[in-house]
Design a protein around this nucleic acid. Structure first.
Lengths: 362, 362
DNA sequence: TTGTATGCGTTATCAT
DNA sequence: ATGATAACGCATACAA
């Protein structure tokens, strides 16, 4: 039974107390455990942190008391005394998506294995929110931070530089950043998709972007595609729709292809994302284009829907769990050894090509 | 720029120091800020906690220094001093599912609004894991705990009773538990589905369970269904498959219905969950049963797939965001006012009936 | 309104 | 192997 909160068991010698007692936590403290086990509080502390330095006998007695009381050392006090808190803060852009949830699981699995406590915040894709979350985290003096974007607000950048802890930007891989990077590379994704079609013998392969010019990610995938085409001696064909929304853009793209003479049509189309690709699959038949016989199609992202269309969609899936887990692995390494080489680490986590029917050329 | 960690700026008057200095955090402390602003540390403390008690002039000077230094009070020290930490621990069964992710968002939104920090752990549906997470949380002296199951291990129950903090069991609603309850009620779900068909004029309505007898949740939904049937003067028809897996059980159920003379067949079937219902939709046509013309179908859970089958599946969706947000609302209320009535609160969060084509009778 | 002294629960340091 | 003591950064009671 916990000590009576009204009359705290803990507290130093009550002699010479001139002030009113402060509210005690109502739970056991090292001193309580020490008293019950007939040792001093230091010995109890050692029992948890350097057990080998405590005698067998004392260890047994303390173990019994700890068992009886469900005593757990107060982490706040521990942190204050050691300056070695076990907290890692992570700011996710969207906790709700299944993909990011996988990443969270990757992080928390690795965190748990290394005795770290993960502090999570959701930024809802907003930079302001990210900044607020970081300010909150700062109060906990995290030993490291994991962020899922790399374009921060100026205030956030200032705070980050002040914190002096390892910082990992995880999800997309960017070169030349001052922080550790873990994630997939958009260029590689584009190349992977292009080669998938090139390897099947296609020559006319189109990359379809929507009209949202500011989406640099999709544009970088198209650049990877273009590189692979050039390497294979083929002509890149990046086609940008006028419509900024995925559905409108995809319909536009299919209509444009249908308008070409059959001999002029691309044999395959890589869409900037799954929702465009799925729209294309659904709307192509009505315009007389069979998928994949008339036009092979691939997307990006592996949304749940992509597995159930007819034909099912070939797409690329970032390995969210691996990204989360590697991000925390970097944190652990940084905390243990410091950065050996000096600069920030860069880990590219490969995406999986999910091959389904929509991209089958033969 | 933060103080040089080699020669800590903070630290009390260095006079009469007999011991070596302890490693300081390398960041600013109240005393640093106080010195820079030309006030005492108490004033800085008050600036954060009771600003109205600090003079305009001092407030302005402190504000400027705080701005320059990006100073954030150390939460661990604050907690130690006040015994009023702002941490709430939540143990989720499965962070990866989109539904639970919604619940996390509900909790973290409400937590942020009330200055609470959410500590998350994933139990992967394991009671052991739940216990470990709770032991970790205990070290942080959370002000409240949110759990997503109510059948804990004995050790966990012992720990929970020791912690003496508000505990909320969120997700499913159970009566008679010693802790606060937030969630949906399985009985209500069963009733809602039965009434959906009764209201359309159906008389022969079957509830289909799989062979996994230990799944009490589905069984309770069937009990709600039975209640509604009896209330409407109809005969309950709970049918249990032999197969324990969803796909096998659903196929069995459809075959059993197909084997009946058309006049004997149920007009509608409520399946214990979406994956059974979807399997039924996919396999019924092959046995000559049209959906919904020959057999109307409904499920439970609103998995992503349920929106894309043909016909799309009518189902029931727990409001995960609301459950998360209400759970934290209870926490906030408990922290502010204590429990007014005395006993634990019970909040039933209604589910949404997602009406799609599969259940249309006319 | 502002400052001084003290304690929160733990660990680091020094002494035995 | 064990213990006494100070210190971590902050907030509170009390004094001015």
């Amino acid at each position: 039974m916990p000590p009576d909160p009204e009359r705290p068991v803990s507290g130093r010698s009550t002699a010479r107390r001139q002030r009113a007692a402060r509210p005690s936590s109502g739970t056991y403290t090292v001193r309580d455990i020490a008293a019950m086990a007939g040792v001093s509080s230091v010995t109890v502390s050692r029992y948890f942190n350097e057990p080998q330095r405590v005698s067998e006998a004392a260890r047994a007695r303390i173990a019994r008391v700890v068992e009886q009381t469900s005593y757990v050392p107060n982490q706040a006090a521990r942190f204050l005394a050691t300056n070695q808190g076990g907290v890692v803060g992570a700011v996710m852009q969207n906790v709700t998506s299944a993909t990011f949830a996988d990443m969270v699981r990757g992080m928390s699995d690795m965190a748990e294995r290394n005795g770290l406590q993960l502090l999570l915040a959701n930024s809802n894709f907003s930079r302001d929110s990210e900044g607020r979350a970081l300010r909150t985290f700062a109060g906990w003096h995290p030993r490291a931070l994991v962020l899922t974007r790399s374009d921060h607000s100026p205030e956030t950048d200032a705070l980050l530089s002040r914190l002096r802890v390892p910082i990992v930007e995880a999800w997309e891989f960017h070169a030349g950043r001052p922080f550790h990077q873990v994630g997939f590379c958009q260029l590689t994704v584009g190349r992977m998709l292009a080669r998938h079609f090139i390897g099947q013998g296609a020559a006319r392969i189109r990359f379809v972007l929507n009209g949202a010019v500011e989406d640099g990610r999709a544009t970088r995938r198209s650049e990877g595609y273009a590189q692979a085409m050039v390497e294979a001696g083929l002509a890149p064909d990046v086609w940008r729709a006028g419509a900024a929304d995925d559905v409108g853009a995809a319909r536009e793209a299919i209509a444009a292809i249908a308008a070409l003479a059959p001999a002029e049509r691309p044999r395959a189309a890589i869409f900037a994302n799954d929702s465009m690709a799925i729209t294309a699959i659904l709307s192509a038949p009505a315009l007389g284009i069979g998928v994949p016989a008339g036009l092979a199609i691939a997307g990006f992202g592996d949304t749940p829907l992509s597995a159930v269309t007819t034909p099912a969609l070939t797409t690329v899936r970032p390995d969210a769990y691996a990204i989360g887990s590697r991000a925390l692995a970097i944190v652990v390494a940084a905390l243990q050894g410091g950065t050996p080489g000096g600069g920030p680490q860069a880990v590219e986590v490969p995406c999986a090509l999910v091959e389904r029917e929509s991209s089958r050329l033969c």
